[in-house]
């Protein structure tokens, strides 16, 4: 983490730094100590770091997970059956109230338009994009990306 922070001096890099730190971590969340370290590095209040962390949805993950599945449920995907797909996915992975399933390795996040409307309904698993989905296809993709 120190190494990442040392790449950035100016506080305008706060968002970039958080991205990089989270990308390198297995569990996609920051501890209180890490938040304090980041604040000290950029010479800003812990509250400011927390403010940024809680504002942006991509940083909103509070639990340890291996993979994040972002499933689009905005109008274009919705009319192509995204709602049923969300229900199916959560049931298939046995998600808890925090939307974590697959024995703790997947977080299912319903997200806004991913700009994949031409292949709706679509999901992103971590950095990978999958479109034109149905239940069978989605099941297969999950198994291949466990």
């Amino acid at each position: 983490m120190e190494e990442i922070l040392n790449r950035y001096r100016d506080r305008s890099y706060l968002i970039e730094a958080i991205h990089d730190i989270l990308d390198e971590k297995d569990e996609k969340s920051l501890t209180d100590d890490e938040i304090k370290k980041i604040a000290r590095h950029f010479k800003i209040n812990t509250a400011e770091v927390l403010g940024v962390l809680t504002f942006y949805t991509m940083f909103s993950v509070k639990w340890k997970v291996k993979h994040t599945i972002r499933i689009c449920n905005s109008p274009a995907c919705y009319i192509k059956g995204a709602k049923e797909l969300v229900t199916f996915l959560k049931n298939y992975l046995g998600c808890d109230k925090n939307n974590i399933g697959g024995n703790g390795s997947f977080l299912v996040e319903e997200v806004e338009c991913l700009g994949l409307c031409d292949v709706a309904p679509a999901v992103m698993i971590d950095d990978k994009v999958f479109g034109n989905l149905n239940k069978e296809k989605l099941k297969k993709i999950i198994e291949e990306n466990k």
Partner: peptide
């Protein structure tokens, strides 16, 4: 920052 639902031109 293309995020308008249904929009994928900038991508």
């Amino acid at each position: 920052d293309e995020g308008e639902p249904g929009t994928f031109k900038d991508r």
